[in-house]
Computed example of a mutant assay.
Amino acid sequence: METSVTVKELVTTLDIEILHGAEFEKRPIVSSEVSRPGLVLTGYKDFYPHERIQLIGRTEISYINSKTAEERIEIFKMLCHKDTPAIVISRGIEVPAELIPLTEVLGIPILGSRSKTSRVLANITNFLEGKLAERLSKHGVFVEVFGMGVLLVGSSGVGKSETALELIQRGHRLISDDRVDLYMIDELTLIGEAPEILQNLLEIRGLGIIDVMSLYGVAAIRRSKKLEVIIDLVIDDGTVEYDRLGSKKEFEQVFEVQVPKIRIPVKTGRNLAAIVESAAMNFRANSMGYNATDAFNKKLDRLIMQNREE
């Protein structure tokens, strides 16, 4: 089933209003790309993406106004198509009179914004990319730790939700428990958010479901966050070997993004919340160019050289 967004959702979220055709507010938008139809207005129709929102700014309106009424009608006939979701006019420009009857026949709403064209383009594109992007549902608990998006994964019962609860009590924020929806907004960036039914909720074994926002306030939750690191909580049964120095880098591919992954052994007596905090801060330090393992290796090399000289 094709994902879509309605025109009503678009105008409700952004600083855009329906100027004409309010009865067509449920018209679906299926493409996250926005077209500025400059070439189409001049008569070049090859490769015209009529299934996209058409954005008209000052440049396009200036060209249109230079034409006669009959020429403007022909131009708008090329612009309007039965699957064009909407036409947006920026900068508070008045809607050309010749455009209105054509859009009414095809059921195309005309939208308006007072913002400059480039800003309208960016806002619509960002909104649609978030709504229409392909999504992947992944099991885990997604939290914000020191401003970083951290996804806790591991087998059922390993303690992910309990660790998240302690992190919340330490001042960090919950994004999603049990399941997180991930989508890619560019080649390097993944965004995670909670499914609507799970927003603000956390399940603790033996206690049940708690509403984090009700118990800890709005500062304890966040709607979405960039995924920066995955922490895999693995039950330590004595059979798994770990890189004690942390020199090996591990990644997990989600869509086309390589996400850094850290494996942490879980056993009785370990304070997982404190370890997750340290892992997040250490990852941030590595991202800023400081690596404790490299620093240790340099010190070790110096010590070996000193012993050789002696």
Rank of each mutant, 00 (worst) to 15 (best):
T3P: 03
T3D: 06
T3Y: 01
V7E: 08
E9V: 01
E9D: 11
L10R: 08
I18A: 05
A22T: 11
K26M: 14
I29Y: 05
V30G: 02
V34S: 00
P37T: 05
G38P: 11
L39S: 02
L39F: 10
G43Y: 10
G43T: 08
G43A: 05
H50C: 12
G57D: 03
I61C: 06
I64C: 06
A69T: 15
A69W: 10
F76H: 01
D83I: 07
A86Q: 08
I87Y: 02
I87F: 03
I89M: 07
I89V: 11
I89A: 00
I93V: 08
V95T: 13
P96S: 04
P96W: 01
L99G: 02
L102H: 04
G107R: 05
G107L: 06
I110Y: 07
L111F: 02
L111A: 00
G112N: 00
S115M: 04
S115R: 03
T117K: 08
V120L: 03
K131L: 11
K131P: 09
A133N: 07
E134A: 05
R135S: 01
L136C: 01
L136S: 03
S137C: 14
V141S: 09
V141K: 07
V143L: 13
E144N: 11
V145F: 08
V145R: 05
M148D: 06
M148Y: 15
M148T: 10
G149D: 07
L152I: 08
V153G: 12
V153A: 12
S155V: 04
S156M: 15
G159M: 10
A164I: 05
L167V: 12
Q169L: 14
Q169M: 13
Q169E: 14
G171N: 10
H172S: 12
H172T: 14
L174R: 02
R179N: 13
R179V: 15
R179F: 13
V180E: 06
V180N: 05
L182K: 04
T189S: 14
I191M: 06
G192S: 10
G192E: 09
A194V: 00
I197Y: 00
L198W: 03
Q199D: 07
L201F: 13
E203K: 12
I204T: 06
R205H: 13
G208T: 12
V212G: 06
M213F: 04
V218P: 00
V218Y: 02
K225C: 01
L227E: 03
E228T: 01
I230H: 11
I231N: 03
L233Y: 03
L233D: 03
V234S: 04
V234G: 06
T239H: 05
V240C: 08
E241A: 04
Y242F: 15
D243C: 09
G246S: 06
K248I: 11
K248N: 07
K249S: 13
E252A: 12
Q253K: 15
V254P: 01
Q258G: 03
V259R: 04
R263Y: 12
P265F: 00
T268K: 14
T268V: 07
G269Y: 02
N271I: 06
A273I: 09
A273S: 15
V276K: 10
N282L: 09
N282M: 15
S287M: 14
A292Q: 11
D294W: 10
F296H: 13
K299F: 12
R302V: 09
I304R: 13
M305R: 14
M305H: 12
Q306H: 10
Q306P: 01
N307Q: 13
R308I: 04
